[in-house]
Amino acid sequence: MKKGKILEHKLVPKHEVMEESEVKELLDTYKIKKEQIPKIKLSDAVIKEIKAEVGDVVKITRESRTAGKFLAYRLVIE
């Protein structure tokens, strides 16, 4: 399989690993703990491509029918 091919698929939104400081800002904004963020598995096809690690938070830029662009977050778990 060609590398990064799945990242180009129209169903796959952009995933980015967040910096530690960004994560802190996010948690503070919503007054939540890391564990309360939706999860994504380490074995997830996209996570393997972008080489995120357990405990990382990924920022996902979704294309939304109603908002145009929408940011979502997922915590990488085993």
């Binding site: 799945i6 698929h9 169903l11 796959v12 939104p13 995933h15 994504i40 598995k41 997830d44 096809a45 996209v46 996570i47 996902i60 979704r62 997922r74």
Partner: peptide, 10 residues
């Protein structure tokens, strides 16, 4: 399986 959980959501 092939494209990940976010693609599945979509």
């Amino acid at each position: 399986d092939v494209l990940g959980i976010e693609a599945a959501r979509n």
